[in-house]
Write a protein that binds this DNA or RNA. Sequence first.
DNA 1: TCCCTTATCGTCGACATGACGATAAACCGG
DNA 2: CCGGTTTATCGTCATGTCGACGATAAGGGA
Lengths: 249, 249
Amino acid sequence: MRSRSVPAAVAASPGLPVDVVPIALSVDLVLLTVRDDQLCVLLVRRGIEPFRGRWALPGGFVRPQEDLAEAAVRELAEETGVRRRPAHLEQLATYGAPARDPRGRVVTVAFLALAPLSQAPVAGTDAAASRWAPVAGAGDPPGLAFDHQAILGDGLERARAKFEYSAVATAFCEPEFTVAELRRIYELVWGGRLDPRNFHRKVTGTAGFLVPTGRFTTRDGGRPAELYRRGDAGVLHPAMLRPTARPNP
Amino acid sequence: MRSRSVPAAVAASPGLPVDVVPIALSVDLVLLTVRDDQLCVLLVRRGIEPFRGRWALPGGFVRPQEDLAEAAVRELAEETGVRRRPAHLEQLATYGAPARDPRGRVVTVAFLALAPLSQAPVAGTDAAASRWAPVAGAGDPPGLAFDHQAILGDGLERARAKFEYSAVATAFCEPEFTVAELRRIYELVWGGRLDPRNFHRKVTGTAGFLVPTGRFTTRDGGRPAELYRRGDAGVLHPAMLRPTARPNP
DNA sequence: TCCCTTATCGTCGACATGACGATAAACCGG
DNA sequence: CCGGTTTATCGTCATGTCGACGATAAGGGA
C-alpha cells in the first residue's frame, strides 16, 4: 500500500523515502487595512494562467531555504512594494484540497496581516496590478481566484474574533491615535456601532491596552481628544465581546 | 532573482513554473486523551532514521490526492490502529523551518485531536511502538523527535485556550458523563482545582452545553449524579476563564 | 445508625457591562 | 462675542456573572 511507483527522480530529497511525493508549497496573505473609513484587503490581479485577469490574494511559492513567515513578507514586498513588516502577522491556516489549483498539487499556508495604511501604500512591481478592495464585495461577480474567497472569509473571521480578546486592533492605527479612532476600527471590523462612552471606559480601564501620551488633538473635530500609543498588553482580561455575538436574548 | 537554475526534472507539476521547488509535506497529530486520571498524548517510537528510537508525534507524508485532514486520520489509523475518527479534530498550525528535518525540506501540518480513551485504545501496526504518555514529562530526557516538542506545546496551549470558550471538553468524555467527570477533565487540562459548586452552576446554566438524560449513576461514589450528553453548543457565552489566567491581582 | 463522600442548591459581595444622563472643550456661523 | 454643534470624557444605575463558601440531599460502608 505504501510505495506506488513514483519515479525516484521526483523524490523530494535524497534522504527521504522514495515514495514521498513532492508538493508545491505557497504562501498567501490576507493583508487588511483601514482606508477611507472602510476595511480593505489587498488584492493583486493575476498576470498568468490560471485565473488570468482575476483578482487574488498576494502570495507565491516558498523557496528552498525560506521559513514560511519569511516567504510571506518577501512575497508581500515583491508583489506590492510593501517593504515594511506589517504591524501584525500571524499564520491563519493551511489549505490543501487536492484540486484547489488546476495546475497540480499546490498547498498554501495562509497568513493574516494587519497594517495601518501608511505602512502599506501599495505600489506593485511584480503583479499586473494591485489594489485595496473593500472587504464588503471583494472580488464581487467572478469571485477571487482559487479558494481565496474562502481564505479571505477565514481571515476576516479570525480578525473579528481576535479583536475580542486581544489588542491587535491597534495594529491598524498610526503610532499615536485617539480612542475614537480605535473605536472606529472596531466598528468597521465588527460592523455596527459601539457606544463611545462604554468603549472609552473599557479600553482606558484595561491595563496595558493604551498608554496615554499627555498630548491632545482636535483632528476629529469637537473637544480635543487625548492621544495614546499601543500598550504592551497582548490579551484582554476580560474580553470585549462584540454586540452581535449575543445568542441569549 | 526568480529563477535559480532548479532542474526542470524536479518541478512539482508540468503546469507550474519550472522554478517552483517541490517540498515534502507531512501531517503530524497531537492526539490527547484522559487516562488514569492524567492528560496523555499519543506518541510513537521512530523505527527509522533520523531520530531512530526516539518518541515522536504520529504522522506521515501526505499522498498526492489526499486532503490534509484525511491524511491525518489515515496516519492515525496506520500508525496506531485508531480507526475511528477522533471526537474532535482541528488544524493546529504548519511548521516549516528550513532545517526542521535533517533529511531535507519537510513542512508539516499539525493537527490537534481529542478523543475519549475508549475511542483510541492504541494498538500500533506500523510504528515500532506507540504509547500514551502523560503530557507532564512527555519525551523527558531526550525530548521528542524533530520539533515535535514545540508542536506538542502549541497543541496543549490551544486545547487549554479552547476549553475556555468552547465545549470541546466533552470530546474527552464518554457519550454519557457526569458533571464531576467533566470537571475533572477541565482540572487535568488546566492544572489546578475548580470549585465543584461554581463549575456545576456554570456548565448546567449555559444553554446547549449539556443535555440531561434524567438517569443517574453512583460510579463516582457519594450521592448519585445525573448523567448528561454533549449539547450542540459550539461556543460558550460568556467564556469560562481558567483561574490562572488572572493577570490583575 | 453514624459517618464519609459526593451532588446540588443558595447566598452574598465584588465587579463588569449596557443604557444613558451630564459636563467639558473645541469649532463655526452669525 | 455668543449660542449652537460636535466630540470627549466622566458618572449613575440596574442587571448579570463570578468567586467564595454555607447548607442540604442522597448514596455507601463500618
